[in-house]
Amino acid sequence: MEHSMEWAGRIARDVGERVQQARRRQRMSAQALADRCAELGLPMDRSVIAKLERGLRQGVSLAEVLVMARALEVPPLQLMLPIGHAVTAEVLPGVTVDTWQAAQWIEGSAPFPTDRGDDERGVTSPAGDWSHGAAAVRLWREHATAVALWRDRIWLADRLRQDAARNWKVADELRAQQHDPAASEADRALASQRISAVTTRASELLRQAESFEQLALYHEGKLRELRQQMRQADIALPLLKDEPFLGHVDTEPPASELERVLARRLADQDRKRHEGGAVGWREKDDEGGDLELELL
């Protein structure tokens, strides 16, 4: 018991040192830090912070670490562990481990690291037990990754389609020049060459956009799978309120590939119309009879 109390005191001392370092880097006074903590909902007297920084407290609470981290604009892990200052950390009474491995354990991306004691005893829990305990963290992390990748692919596809639309607009302007009665034969020939170049470029941009949309569909499917796994494990689902194009994943069955592409085109068309543009999409059959989408 006494040993664990001493460890708790060492933890508090180390956290206090890191709080002081972060505070001084920002040229923030102890009183300013106390005021900011109070604004965040956890009143902390200046003397309490001073005692923590001087290593005079026997413990520090998780609530205090979280609020001070927010007040100092640093990750809570930066206060909890000596990241960037020491290669090892005492994360349990008498158990010193690699600092970064300890950070991975705290954030749920790896099991507890092996103890660095002289006897080299292992303190890692059975892999199966750790995996089960970390399931929620793992699924939420994969969910965030899937959303980020989906968003990135959709953004790239939209940018490519906008670039394609600009190329088609240039082609229309060039066609108008071609039919200008005052244009010379040389001007018409040059316009024809440029039309060929910009339409080829527009078609390539559309092809690239469709490739990114296919990738977005893959990540959307991954998202459905992850959310289903969460339901089965009785894990609360992350909100999708900030991603309107993903709101259907919980309420609608997976759409066919063509339906999803059409939905994206309709959304794109609505956006262009709202912005005052004249860009739209229509279906067409190519020579092989396959259904494609063509820029109007």
Results as ranks from 00 to 15, higher is better:
E283P: 12
A38C: 02
A102R: 01
A267F: 04
M5V: 15
E252M: 05
E142G: 08
L237C: 04
R166C: 10
Q162T: 12
S196C: 10
V67P: 00
E53Q: 05
W130K: 00
R54A: 11
L66R: 05
F245E: 01
R24G: 07
A209Y: 02
L52R: 00
A171C: 07
L226K: 01
E210R: 06
A38H: 06
E257D: 07
V60P: 00
A50D: 02
R161G: 01
G277L: 12
A136I: 13
I83L: 10
L92E: 13
A30T: 13
D152K: 11
G108E: 04
S256P: 05
E225I: 10
R271I: 06
V123C: 04
L174M: 06
E73W: 14
R161Y: 13
L215K: 03
A144W: 14
I49Y: 02
K272G: 03
D163W: 15
R207M: 06
W140Y: 12
E6W: 15
V147G: 00
R188D: 01
S184L: 07
V261H: 05
R175G: 09
L79C: 04
L291Y: 11
A34D: 01
R36C: 06
K169A: 12
E213T: 09
R36N: 06
V97A: 02
E73R: 09
P82I: 05
D242C: 04
Q228E: 10
H85T: 09
R264E: 05
W150K: 01
Q101A: 14
L240H: 02
V15G: 01
A182S: 12
R18P: 08
W130M: 01
R224G: 00
S256A: 10
A278R: 08
H179T: 14
L206T: 04
V249I: 11
Q177C: 12
Q58Y: 14
D115R: 05
D118N: 12
A110M: 07
A32M: 06
I11C: 14
V123W: 08
P76W: 03
Q178A: 11
V279M: 12
T114G: 05
D45V: 04
W155P: 06
E259S: 13
A71K: 04
V15N: 01
A183L: 08
E90D: 09
F212P: 01
L237V: 03
S125N: 10
S203P: 04
L33S: 01
A89E: 00
D35Y: 09
H248D: 02
I195C: 04
R57L: 09
D270M: 13
D234I: 03
V74N: 00
A135I: 11
W130Y: 10
Q177D: 12
D115P: 10
A135R: 03
L266A: 04
A32P: 05
M28A: 04
D180T: 10
E252G: 03
E73P: 04
E283T: 15
W150M: 03
V87L: 11
A134S: 07
S184H: 10
A30V: 11
A255M: 08
P181N: 06
R46A: 01
R46I: 05
G133S: 09
Q21V: 15
R201P: 03
E53V: 03
E259Q: 14
G84L: 06
